[in-house]
Computed example of a mutant assay.
Amino acid sequence: MKLTEKKRENIIEAAIAEFREQGFLGANTTRIAKRAGVSSRTLYNHFESKEDLFHAITDIMIARNSAMAPVDYDPDRALDDQLIEALERYVAVITDEEAIGLNRMVISEFLRDLDRSRAFFAEAAAHDYPVTKLIADAMEAGALRKADAGYAAGQLLALVKNFFFWPDFLLGEKQNTDGIMKDCVAMFLSYYKTTE
C-alpha cells in the first residue's frame, strides 16, 4: 500500500472514531487529523470537508454490501436451501462487528439529516444484494411467481433483519435465532413460490 493510500485509510478510520464519539455535528477535522497522525493540510488534500469524509464512509458501507457475490439460481437444488445460504452470507456481512459500528455511526446521522439519509438510501438502492439476483433468477425460471425481484428481496430481507440485525444493532447482543432463518424463508416461499 502506498503511503498516500495508507494516510487516506488512517484518516477514514480516525473519522469513523471521531463521528462515533462526537456525532457528525460535534466532529472536528483538526481532531480527526491528529487521530490519523497527519496534518490538517494532508486531511484536506484527501477530503475537502467533513461532509466528504462522511460520504466516503457511507461509500465504504455500500461497497461492503455490494462486494457480496451474487448467487445464481440452481434449478437442481431446493430453493429454500439456496435462499438460506444466500441470506446467511448476507447476515454475516451486515452483522460483522465493524459493519455494526459503521451502521450505528451513520444511522445516527441519518436520523438528524433527512436529506443525507435520502441520498444514501437512493445510492444503496442502486446496488443489488446477492439474494436479489437469486430471487430474480428463480422468478425467471418459474420457481417463484413473477413480481418485482427487488421488492420481493426487500420483503425477505426485512424479515431477516428483524431477527438477525436489529437486536445486534440496537441491543449489542445476538439473539437465539435457531430455526428463524428457515421460518423467514418458509414465510417468503408461502407467498411467492409457484405451485408445482
Rank of each mutant, 00 (worst) to 15 (best):
F54R: 07
H55V: 14
I57Q: 06
I57N: 06
T58R: 05
T58K: 06
D59K: 12
D59A: 10
D59I: 09
I60M: 01
M61R: 10
S66D: 11
M68H: 04
M68Q: 10
P70R: 00
V71P: 07
D72S: 14
D72P: 05
Y73W: 05
D74N: 06
P75L: 11
R77F: 08
A78M: 09
D80V: 03
D80E: 06
D81T: 13
Q82P: 07
L83G: 00
L83Q: 07
I84W: 08
E85S: 10
A86E: 05
A86C: 02
L87E: 14
L87P: 00
R89F: 10
Y90P: 13
A92S: 08
A92R: 14
V93G: 07
V93T: 10
T95A: 12
G101P: 15
N103D: 13
R104N: 08
M105V: 13
V106Q: 08
I107K: 15
S108D: 14
E109A: 11
F110K: 07
F110R: 01
D113I: 02
D115V: 14
R116A: 11
S117D: 04
S117I: 09
A119H: 11
F121V: 01
F121C: 03
E123P: 02
A124Q: 15
A124M: 12
H127S: 12
D128V: 09
D128F: 03
P130M: 02
P130W: 00
V131F: 08
I135Y: 01
I135A: 02
D137I: 09
A138E: 04
A138C: 02
A138K: 00
M139F: 09
E140L: 11
E140H: 13
A141M: 04
G142Y: 00
G142F: 04
K146Q: 15
A149H: 03
A149D: 00
Y151N: 14
Y151P: 09
A152H: 02
G154S: 08
L156W: 08
L157G: 11
L157F: 07
L157H: 10
V160F: 01
N162H: 09
F164T: 07
F164C: 06
F164R: 13
W166D: 14
W166T: 07
P167Q: 05
P167N: 04
P167L: 02
D168P: 12
F169P: 03
L170H: 02
L170C: 08
L170V: 07
L171K: 07
G172F: 02
G172P: 05
Q175T: 14
Q175L: 06
Q175V: 14
Q175D: 12
T177K: 02
K182G: 04
D183M: 03
V185K: 02
V185N: 02
M187Q: 13
F188D: 08
F188H: 00
L189G: 00
Y192G: 00
K193D: 10
K193N: 01
T194D: 08
T194I: 04
T195M: 11
T195V: 06
